[in-house]
Write a protein that binds this DNA or RNA. Structure first.
Lengths: 242, 242
DNA sequence: GGAATGTATGCTGTAGGCAGTCGACGACAA
DNA sequence: TTGTCGTCGACTGCCTACAGCATACATTCC
């Protein structure tokens, strides 16, 4: 829902090999090539990416810090498989954080920021009416990021980003479910922020993200088959020989 | 303010060498042997801890994920030096999270939990009256942890723990500042949780943590000399020779 | 036939080592 | 004296290699 932006105290310049490895692995997780619960064998990743195990290991350590993979000492790394319950809790926290962001944004309202918000909102609505789901998702992400940045609380912004990213998957179906109504809520939110109505802004954002949460839950309830986080397998079937 | 409890998706069994290295380094940071802004030279740590650079590197990666150290590619790891502003923002977020925890705790109230809370509260007050600051700090930590766990939202609990830990330092002076009044607030909070008054519980918690935040800020304002996060030095003064 | 044990194998955890890179210091010129 | 360039040292980033461990399969015993 939010664009990638580094957490508070992470890596600054993306120059190293482990950084590019991290990006690659993350991409594979996001697009689903690496499935939830899947065991990430260091050698395989290293071979596929054309590097040694070392940068792969370090990338996995960093990814664990962001909640993308779980490390099991002696067993290696596994793609984190969020349960419905965890996703629900993540979204509940996101609601809390973003509502506060909206409140603070209304408090620190700034004309330039407002016009930027309106621009994004227009684009989002246009994309929505044109049935361009991808563009709508991007605009949605930008809008929420912009609001949370307007809060002026960097910690809040980082945490929101982190939480939002951890929900991942199924954003597009969720976005498809709602559509135009969502952008009307965004417009109302911007109005409230502009006029400095803290409580109103917070409340709109709260209900807005709560809607998203409901859509998400319904979406997963309709597709329970997407749930099971792949059983853990360590060894490949032995080669048939002799 | 909260006891250490692993983040959502981290290491499960603390058996490996890098884990013990992590614990050691973390301890050194917490007790202040490694100062904010200090450059953590891998070889030095490795030598001091009697291991090779590898587990040290990995421990540092993991610590960066928890916000304890900053990684600068090509430069290594530095002990994270939170500014007053960042600490303030962290505490603001903590207020938000803990207020919500209290609300949810009131919603899911349970008799056994309540009596556990009262026990902790009694101990805390006793410690406070006996001027046993350490015991009071521990009890305070336990109480907040218990409440946040009562919320039933694991993500919320983990995030709160993470945020609270990142403030670190100066907890004791803060605890000293307030004392008895703090425990009266705790008692009122427990009453509200027991009777299921969500709004009241949330409000008490909000004001309570806000008090702590104020105390913290005053404490740092009075000791500005503790602030400067040590300038970055990479090399030791060259040995005088020839 | 089933269960316990032995064995093999793949994987992780750790060590050691080399090359690249960044920053500091010193020399030289203006 | 001050600014710029070259050199040097130290540290990181990465690779390779080895040891330990956990799991799965095969064998043996009951």
């Amino acid at each position: 829902m939010l664009a990638n932006q580094g957490s508070t105290a992470k890596i600054v310049r993306p120059t190293t090999l482990r950084e590019s490895v991290l990006e690659r692995i993350l991409e594979l997780i996001i697009i689903g090539s690496l499935k939830p619960g899947q065991h990430l064998v260091e050698n395989e990743l290293a071979d596929n990416l054309g590097v040694s195990r070392q940068p792969v290991r370090e990338a996995l350590q960093l990814l664990s810090g962001e909640g993308w993979v779980d490390l099991r000492p002696g067993h290696g790394a596994y793609v984190h498989a969020p349960t419905v319950e965890e996703a629900d809790q993540l979204l509940a926290v996101r609601t809390l954080l973003e509502a506060e962001s909206a409140r603070l944004a209304a408090r620190n309202t700034d004309k330039r920021d407002i016009s930027a918000l309106r621009d994004i909102c227009m684009r989002g609505l246009a994309a929505c009416l044109a049935d361009d789901v991808d563009a709508a998702v991007v605009a949605n992400s930008e809008l929420h990021t912009a609001v949370v940045n307007m809060s002026g609380n960097r910690v809040l912004a980082d945490l929101t980003s982190q939480v939002a990213r951890r929900v991942r998957w199924y954003h597009t179906p969720v976005a498809r479910h709602r559509g135009k109504a969502s952008w009307e809520e965004h417009a109302a939110l911007i109005d409230a922020i502009e006029s400095g109505e803290e409580d109103v802004a917070a409340d709109i954002m709260r209900r807005h993200t709560e809607h998203t949460r409901q859509s998400y839950l319904e979406s997963r309830a309709q597709h329970p088959e997407e749930e099971p986080p792949a059983p853990i397998r360590r060894r490949r079937p032995r080669a048939v020989s002799s």
